[in-house]
C-alpha cells in the first residue's frame, strides 16, 4: 500500500528547476532508497516530504504529494503537525547541546507533554527502539555531545522516534560514520521498518542493496527508474541506471 504518493512533482530554486515531473509511490512499512550522483535532486526530493524546503527562500513546489489522503502542500496543512507524522534524520549527527534525556524528550515536550513519568517512558522506549538504551541508560543526564558519532546518530533517530512518526526520512544518515557504526545503523533501519515507513537517501549503492526494499534512481532532477531493489540492481530497465550501478559514472 502506498503511504506517500507523489505525482507530477516539479521543484524550482528561483529559476533553476531541480526536480522534473517526479512520480513515485512510497510503500508503507518498507525501506525505500533514493540513489543517484551528487546534485541529482534526491535530497531535495526527500526534503519535500516534510516540507523542510520551506526554510529556503525562493523555493517553489508544484504537483501533488499525498501522505495517505492528505495533500502535504495544501494551503491549510499544519506544517508542524505534518513534521510530527514525518520525522527526519540528517546527514551529520546533530544532537542539541543538551543532555541525552533532554534530546529525546525535546519533541514530546514541545508538543505539550509535561508528565515526568510519561516522558520517562517515551525516552526509554525511543532509546530502546534506536538500540541505544543499554549504552546510555546510566548517563541520561550527561551531555549528548559526549557520545561517539555513531551513538549521536542513533540518538538523533531516537529523538525522531519519540514523536511516534509514521514516516522516517533519512538523509545519508551514515555518510559521516565509520563502518562499524554504519553497520549498527543499517541493522537498526531493518528492524525499524516493522513499524515505520522509511525513506533513505544514500550515496552507497551497497547500502541501498543491503537494506532497502524499493529503490528509486535519480539523475539531473529526473526520476529515471524505480523498482524492487533486487530487480533494479540485477535487471535495470534503463541504460543510465545500469551505467550508474555498474560504476560507469557518478
Amino acid at each position: 500500500m502506498a503511504k506517500i504518493s507523489v505525482k507530477d512533482l516539479n521543484l524550482y530554486y528561483g529559476d533553476f528547476q531541480a526536480l522534473n515531473n517526479i512520480d513515485l509511490k512510497i510503500e508503507e512499512k518498507k525501506v525505500t532508497a533514493l540513489i543517484g550522483p551528487s546534485g541529482c535532486g534526491k535530497s531535495t526530493f526527500l526534503r519535500t516530504l516534510n516540507r523542510m524546503n520551506d526554510l529556503i527562500d525562493h523555493v517553489k513546489t508544484e504537483g501533488c504529494l499525498c501522505l495517505e489522503d492528505q495533500d502535504i502542500y495544501d494551503g491549510d496543512v499544519d506544517v508542524v503537525a505534518l513534521r510530527r507524522r514525518v520525522g527526519m534524520v540528517f546527514q551529520k549527527p546533530n544532537p542539541f547541546p543538551k543532555s541525552i534525556y533532554e534530546n529525546v524528550a525535546y519533541g514530546p515536550k514541545r508538543y505539550g507533554m509535561k508528565d515526568k513519568k510519561q516522558l520517562d517512558e517515551i525516552v526509554e522506549r525511543s532509546l530502546k527502539e534506536a538500540a541505544l538504551w543499554e549504552e546510555v541508560k546510566d548517563r541520561l543526564n550527561k551531555s549528548a555531545l559526549g557520545l561517539s558519532g555513531g551513538q549521536q546518530q542513533r540518538l538523533c533517530i531516537a529523538r525522531a522516534l519519540a514523536m511516534k512518526p509514521e514516516v522516517l526520512l533519512m538523509d545519508e544518515p551514515t555518510s559521516a560514520l565509520d563502518p562499524i557504526a554504519t553497520a549498527k545503523i543499517e541493522e537498526l533501519i531493518m528492524n525499524l521498518k516493522e513499524n515505520y515507513t522509511i525513506v533513505i537517501v544514500t550515496h552507497s549503492m551497497q547500502q541501498a542493496a543491503r537494506i532497502s526494499d524499493n529503490t528509486a534512481f535519480f539523475l539531473m532532477g529526473d526520476l529515471i527508474e524505480t523498482d524492487k531493489t533486487q530487480k533494479l540492481f540485477t535487471t535495470p530497465r534503463d541504460k543510465r541506471t545500469e551505467d550508474y550501478i555498474t560504476g560507469r559514472f557518478g
Partner: peptide, 23 residues
C-alpha cells in the same frame, strides 16, 4: 547558531518560536 540545530528542532515538529526559545 548552527543551522542544523534549527533544522533538527523544526523537523521534530517544533514551531519556529519554540525553536528560537529552546535551541
Amino acid at each position: 547558531v548552527p543551522q542544523s540545530y534549527r533544522e533538527a528542532s523544526l523537523a521534530l515538529g517544533a514551531t519556529k518560536w519554540q525553536t528560537i526559545q529552546n535551541v
